[in-house]
Amino acid sequence: MQRSTTLENVPTDRNAQHAVIDQARKSLGRIILGKDDQISLALACLLARGHLLIEDLPGLGKTMLAQALARVLGLSYRRIQFTSDLLPADIIGVSVFRQESGEFEFQPGPVFSQLILADEVNRATPKAQSALLEAMEEQQVSVDGNTRDLPSPFFVVATQNPGDQIGTFPLPESQLDRFLMRVEIGYPSEESERELIAGEDRRAMLKDIEPVTGPETLVLLQQAVRSIPVTDALVSYIQALVRHTRESAEIEIGLSPRGAQALVAAARAYAFVAKHSGVYPDDVQAVFAAIAGHRLKPAGSTRFRSPAELCQHVLDSVAIP
């Protein structure tokens, strides 16, 4: 179901690029009500070429966000429902013997799409999970000794129900690191919920929504993000944050250098989404919980109930240089 790419008007100047992002945010905001922060984070994650893990209870719109992203950004989209009997071949594809030609022919699996929704990724066995995670890491898959490139852009949105539910295989920390961001959606505000209940069916709306851009533009935007300047002052701030996570008594394992890199990349993308002239401390703070939340291991004695609280504590204790 690879959608043929329409002829894109690829925006080359910064204003036009910002306009694309704005339109995408607006369209997404119409479907996912009252979750502007999460939408911005998801877009930033995509622009930073990272993968997104959405973690929350069922029914909060995780799937909807992933679908809406694919639709609005004009990406080819496949959904893989992770179950305990999912096999790696169900994700990657299989080689089938063709009687007529007498040869094996590769049947690409759902992973050969630009945006993949890995729904309830923690329900599958570690074997199936690692098949996906490897594909995410390498941007390519190996089948029968052949290496096949995955499409570009390649963006995985995985959803996960919090691990305290029955019959799940929570992703280990090392695997979690593969996701650039982990975002929680949370309950909608009262106002948004009224509209959700009374308003139009979101699924129907999703069908009507027009893509605002396409994969080529997205690749271009991803490149543009990397030209956002990171000044010395900001690097100092990030270093201070990272150092604090390593030295704080509340945290057992702090951010790794890779975590610090992820923080910079995500902040850059967020600055782009926020139309800032450079990466501001605000951008770092905005992405910090999404970046650090699943990478930090709180100390056993911690007084913070959630990673989000812990992250806010870190931000509140590090001075902006």
Partner: peptide, 9 residues
């Protein structure tokens, strides 16, 4: 300030 300290400013 933001532009001078963190941007292209």
């Amino acid at each position: 300030y933001m532009d001078a300290r963190y941007g292209h400013g």
